[in-house]
Design a protein around this nucleic acid. Structure first.
Lengths: 230, 230, 230, 230
DNA sequence: GATGAATGAGCATTCATTCAT
DNA sequence: AATGAATGAATGCTCATTCAT
């Protein structure tokens, strides 16, 4: 757009600084913090981005386009299954510093400026393509959908960010990804403990039979009385 | 502490309202919104909680204690493995509305007020106990640690919150939990695609042998020259 | 609305201060100047008025309602013609300190908040009634309309504000008002001086005949040539 | 001053643009809007005018000199009375787009830069000369002064700007000018309505006698008592 | 003890002015 | 000489906290 070198450089500086500060402090950062970090005045930020919203969207859009590029790279150079797993692992494992954007890619809500909405769409498309190929190759469970994966990325990034020990965080992510494979096991449902609907005491769990609703005849009777009284 | 009934009741009202509003709008809510929701004046909030920070910590501490109670309930009434899985699933699946606290339980950082730090410690202890019993019973992988689980809760809650489709979100959570089981499979590592360290072109991937670092002798030589030049 | 005395008093203080400052410095005053003048904090202003716009409209609306009250007072106690003239003179002559509002009553543009629009309408209605009565009594020119009078007020206020000598300003206003009377004389039109349409030199003015368009045959010919050349 | 043609041309461009934008949006326009309208950079504006104030003054000074030129033109070509009336009408009626300057010519306050003060002085002198000649010819009231006329111009311009209907605005201006003529009638003063100085009720108006200050003996007595009590 | 009004520091944004290109 | 990018003070507005009622 502009030929002036210092202007282009400043734009980059601001984008970098915003990305850093967003990663560190979340989306509620003050613009002046970004400006200070970038080493420029507040006005300069506004010369390059019409509002804080635009800046944030620009940062996110750039990061998302980075994801899309990674997806294409993996697709180009690995077998369908490996590509999908490799991509997911890369995005999640590198997500320190990009956690906010991992929430963005799953959000329903329309963004005020077209910039980000378009980028999110590009990302979803890339994910769709990778997933379709991986399914066709039989590398992942057939019941997965693109939005499962998007949510998985958000969840994985949160896990990664939450784990006190970085290395073990990575390990957990690996474990989770494994559950997407074709052979992965379905969750064996746990019997839910209900409490007595009348007095609240916990109910013993039995493997068979209809689950009890009351802890005994007394409570059952009492509940019944209340119903018929109406 | 106080004998006046209305005072105690107001304290409860404020806590309830704060929990609701925090769940709805995240941690950046204004205090007056909380006060309005509770149906009291701003001053009343300050009578019961010395600052907004204290209030937020009180809300979180109460929710964490709710988790601890759930852990004890499961421990009391189910087999070690079922108890752990049941508990994790319950916490994560019900986490809509408690997502912020799921991040709290993993955070390293000391909280300004002892209140929350203590609650987090109680939670970690409960988790430790459940995990130890489950391991002894052979129900979960032996290499898991309590902070893996804490991180998993945070990640699971994020996934749950991120999934556009609530029911499928639950399904994903189930799938993930399964990967904690003893028989769960180790992640088959994906060969990372590196690009030529000198010129950046993508490198072909081979199943065997040491992964190449350069795309050919030319680049290897050039890189070497730069090193020796120093 | 509120029972607290200090709150009501502060609201009044802010309104007074805003009116003063608006009168002194026009509509571009900063809100903090108003707050300082009122002796309150900026936040207090915002407690009473949701935005600067609302405050400004409230000030104007109050002043306009003062005008309406004056109109009613005059109508109640004087003959139709006297009422109209007395009212106009009072509004214009007292307009030092209310000049901005005199522009408001003539503005077409809708105000963002209903408050002011409604007040302006009330004022126009009052003006309509007075004018109708005065016309019926034969006290003013029959060709006057309410918006002539509104504009006259704005103009009169400007004159009043512009005159270096206050007393003589009043005198001018009196003179102007006189021109609204039934017997007032129509303006004898002044022949407009045109300049030569070709070379721009001034043209002599003659009482009779068609006004000349060119200063002489040379210019007329030159202009003609340009037309036919096309 | 400078020999470069483009520099002179730019100066003109800026002046034109500033005049336009000032007319459209009033004196609070941003300098960058002026620069954009002129098709030059902000720096260029500052090359030609040391500050925004200087630019604004230059615009006004130029417009005022335009008025002076018009005055001279009328003086040269019309009878004294016609010249004055024609001039006033021309200035006021064309004032759409020069309203701000009409306020300038009446302002007492010294301008920061000599430029404008001098132009205003030239204008006042021209006005003085026209008025003297018109008085001598018996065409206008003898009690008029130059600053009456200056204020009249400001007021007329405001009226012109305020009237919703342009054509009728012009009509009103004509009517007003008529009141300057020798034969124009003095304003018949309207008895001012006072309210009872004690209780505030309105007082009946009588054509003769000293205006009453109280509504009756009761109030008069009460007021008197308060005075003597001190 | 409860209320909600007052406070003022902090934030996003604009704009006159300067200065590197 | 022209450009337009950078600056930072100022503005409208919000909100955690205090305090008079």
């Amino acid at each position: 757009m502009t030929t002036r070198v210092d202007a282009r450089r400043n734009r980059e500086l601001v984008l970098r600084a915003a990305a850093q500060v967003l990663a560190e402090d979340g989306r509620e950062v003050s613009l002046s913090r970004i400006a200070r970090r970038a080493g420029v005045g507040a006005g300069t930020v506004y010369r390059h981005f019409p509002s804080k919203e635009f800046l944030v969207e620009a940062v996110f859009a750039e990061q998302i386009d980075g994801f899309v590029a990674a997806a294409d790279r993996w697709t180009a150079r690995a077998a369908p299954g490996d590509a999908l797993f490799g991509f997911l692992f890369e995005v999640i494992d590198k997500s320190t510093g990009t956690k906010p954007v991992c929430d963005v890619i799953t959000a329903d809500r329309g963004w005020p400026h077209a910039l980000l909405t378009a980028a999110v769409q590009r990302f979803r498309d890339a994910l769709d393509r990778m997933l379709a190929r991986a399914k066709q190759a039989g590398a992942v469970r057939a019941d997965l959908r693109a939005d499962d994966l998007a949510a998985l990325i958000a969840g994985g990034a949160a896990l990664r960010a939450a784990h006190r020990n970085r290395a073990r965080g990575t390990r957990m992510v690996r474990l989770l990804l494994e559950s997407l494979r074709t052979e992965s096991r379905e969750f064996r449902d746990i019997e839910r403990h209900e409490t007595c609907a009348e007095c609240g005491t916990g109910l013993p769990i039995r493997a068979t039979g209809r689950p009890a609703r009351f802890c005994g005849p007394t409570c059952r009777q009492r509940a019944r009385r209340r119903v018929t009284a109406r």
